[in-house]
Lab assay of single mutants.
Amino acid sequence: CLCSQPSVTRTVQKDGPNKGRQFHTCAKPREQQCGFFQWVDEN
């Protein structure tokens, strides 16, 4: 991610068109995240 740490892969849980879709995001706690976000299928 943007803070030079490994990102984590998560899955959208919220109902909607992206439910079940995976994405990479910053591994830090929400209030400390660098803002990195990337869909797995758009690499």
Rank of each mutant, 00 (worst) to 15 (best):
R21H: 07
F23Y: 15
G16K: 03
Q33E: 10
Q32M: 15
K14P: 05
A27S: 08
E31W: 02
T11E: 14
Q22P: 08
C34P: 01
L2S: 06
K19F: 13
C3S: 00
Q33R: 15
N18A: 07
D41M: 01
E42F: 07
F37T: 08
C34F: 00
E31G: 14
G16R: 01
C34G: 03
E42V: 12
K28T: 00
T9G: 06
Q5C: 15
Q33G: 04
K28A: 10
Q22F: 06
Q32V: 10
V8N: 07
Q22V: 09
F37P: 02
W39L: 03
P29E: 10
G16Q: 04
P29C: 03
E31H: 11
Q5V: 15
F23P: 01
S4R: 09
L2I: 15
D41E: 14
R21F: 00
Q32D: 08
D15F: 03
T9M: 15
P29Q: 15
F37Y: 10
F23I: 03
G20V: 00
G20F: 04
P17N: 05
G20W: 02
K28S: 08
F23D: 00
P17D: 10
K14R: 14
R21L: 05
N18P: 02
Q22M: 12
N18E: 09
V40Q: 13
P29G: 04
F37Q: 05
E31K: 14
V40G: 11
Q5Y: 06
L2A: 05
Q5S: 11
V40E: 14
Q32F: 03
Q32A: 14
Q32P: 00
T9E: 02
F36C: 05
T9C: 09
A27T: 03
Q38G: 08
S7V: 14
V40K: 10
C34L: 01
R10E: 06
G35L: 01
K28R: 10
C34K: 01
S4E: 03
V12A: 13
C34N: 01
T11A: 07
C34H: 01
G16W: 01
W39P: 05
P17W: 01
R21N: 02
K14Y: 10
G16N: 07
P29A: 10
E31N: 13
R21V: 01
N18C: 14
E31D: 15
D41Q: 12
S7K: 04
E31V: 06
V8K: 07
